[in-house]
Structures are given as structure tokens and as C-alpha cells.
Design a protein around this nucleic acid. Structure first.
Length: 260
DNA sequence: ATGCCGAACTTCGTTCGA
């Protein structure tokens, strides 16, 4: 069972690329982020025609998440992260697919540091920590897949240049501490579990020739609950899709789990 | 200190992203 996290940077702008990915890789589940599309403009027919059921959470202009499932309809568990009724941003959706609970997460970027945006990011991380604790308590297979907008460590394994990113919200000690606190609840960072050493970048900026220079960083993560981690076969980044025409600035990041 | 690029709305500039 291949489960993918894919920040699309616009599902309508990226539709051809996404359909190509579905056709070539035949992933079982794709957790999409940054749809940048209102509900009424989502490409529902095209995704259905590709053989995928979907749970959508769109938003006009920005954000937006979805879970696509090959050959089945994802069973909705929740739309939106609990903990703040005032929060109207579409950043969380959770469903059950073939016995596995899957979440598609688009964590706030948080730049610039020291603003309300950064405070919102940290508050969102705290809300995620609380919700994730409840998921672990269920003792079921869970995959928390998404763009976390957190570079886990200040090493070249996670970021091309610690210095270049030092003032960025993605690499602040508070952001990293919150991510570690989440992990230490008992989640497995699937990419690192399978690839303990070496860079595993998932994002390369469009600017300044970042892709050409391999100036990337690792911010798309798949966290596995213990019973999901027991089934972990492999994990990786489908990096070559970043180099194609009209690519997203993120590459699809994935795990494969053993079937029961 | 800023733009570099790209997407979408606020639409031929502005806002956001990372």
C-alpha cells in the first residue's frame, strides 16, 4: 500500500502533472496539500475519471487539502483540526482507507518570525499535538502525511544551508521543538527510519536556481503510529517529478506499508 | 536589505508561499 504526501502548489495548475503521477505510480492514497482552489472549482470529475475517490477540503485562493484513494471512497473521519473554532483555514482532513487512518496536513508556514503568523503556526502545532495524542490512544494504524513546514534538524541531511535558513520560521528552535515533541509521543518519521543518513529533500524553491543547485530541504513528512510502523516496507521521495515541466516546488514523498 | 519564481485573486499589480 503506497501512501503519498504531495504538496501540489495549485491543483488546477498542476492537474496534468497530478494525473500523470497517478497513472505512472498507481499510488493507493495521495494526501494533497495547497490545492489553492475553492470547493466549486475542484477537479472532481477528472480525479474520479482517473479511478480515485476523494475527500476534499478546499479554500478559495490558498491552502486546501484532500485525500485521494484508488478505487475506493475515503471514509471521512474529520474535516478541520480541532481546538480553534475561529480557524477557517483549510489545513487538515482525516479519513479511513482500507483499515488505515490517513491525515492530510498543511501546517502553517509561519513567516515572518515574530508575527501573528508565527504564533498561529506554533498554536497549530500544539493543536496537532493534542489531536495526535488521541489518535495514538486508539492504537490503530495511522499515517499523518503532509507538508509540516518544519525542517527537523540543523543538518545538511535536512537542509542545504543552515545559514541561509537560520531566520526562517521553518527552522526556528520553537518549530523544531514542537515537531520533536510530536514525534516523541511515539510516531515514526518514516523517511528517516528508512534513510538514517544523507539528504532526503522534499522541497526546492523556484527561485535562485534552487533545483539546479540541489538547494532543497526536508519539510514533507509521513509520521506513522506504532502499528503502522510495524508494517513499514519502504519510504522515499519521487524526486524526478520536481524536475519536470510545470512541476510543483515539492516532490511526492511516500511510504509503502505491508498489506495485512 | 531585497529580489530571484510561480499561482491565484485583489487581475496587468498585489499577496502569499518557503
Amino acid at each position: 500500500m503506497k501512501i503519498v504526501s504531495y504538496n501540489l502548489n495549485g491543483i488546477r495548475a498542476r492537474l496534468e502533472r497530478l494525473l500523470e503521477y497517478l497513472g505512472e505510480q498507481q499510488p493507493d492514497v495521495v494526501c494533497c496539500q495547497e490545492l489553492k482552489s475553492a470547493e466549486e472549482n475542484l477537479p472532481r470529475k477528472e480525479i474520479e475519471a482517473a479511478g480515485y475517490g476523494a475527500l476534499w477540503h478546499g479554500q478559495k485562493g490558498f491552502n486546501g487539502v484532500a485525500i485521494l484513494a484508488r478505487g475506493v471512497e475515503p471514509v471521512e473521519r474529520r474535516i478541520g483540526l480541532p481546538g480553534d473554532p475561529e480557524d477557517v483555514q483549510s489545513r487538515y482532513v482525516e479519513a479511513e482507507v482500507n483499515g488505515v487512518v490517513v491525515a492530510s496536513i498543511y501546517l502553517p508556514n509561519g513567516n515572518p518570525v515574530g508575527t501573528e503568523k508565527f504564533a498561529y503556526k506554533l498554536a497549530w502545532l500544539e493543536r496537532l499535538r493534542l489531536h495526535a495524542a488521541g489518535l495514538l490512544a486508539e492504537e490503530i494504524p495511522v499515517v499523518l502525511a503532509g507538508d509540516y513546514n518544519v525542517i527537523p534538524t540543523n543538518t545538511t541531511e535536512d537542509v542545504f544551508s543552515v545559514r541561509a535558513m537560520a531566520d526562517d520560521a521553518l527552522m526556528q528552535p520553537e518549530s523544531q521543538a514542537a515537531f520533536r515533541t510530536l514525534l516523541y509521543q511515539g510516531w515514526t518519521d518514516a523517511i528517516r527510519a528508512r534513510h538514517p543518513d544523507g539528504p532526503q529533500y522534499t522541497f526546492w524553491d523556484y527561485q535562485a536556481g534552487a533545483w539546479r543547485r540541489d538547494a532543497g530541504f526536508r519539510i514533507d513528512h509521513l509520521l506513522l503510529s506504532p502499528s503502522a510502523a510495524d508494517r513499514l516496507l519502504d519510504a522515499g521521495v519521487d524526486k524526478d517529478y520536481r524536475g519536470r515541466e510545470k512541476a510543483s516546488d515539492h516532490a511526492p514523498t511516500w511510504v509503502t506499508l505491508a498489506d495485512l
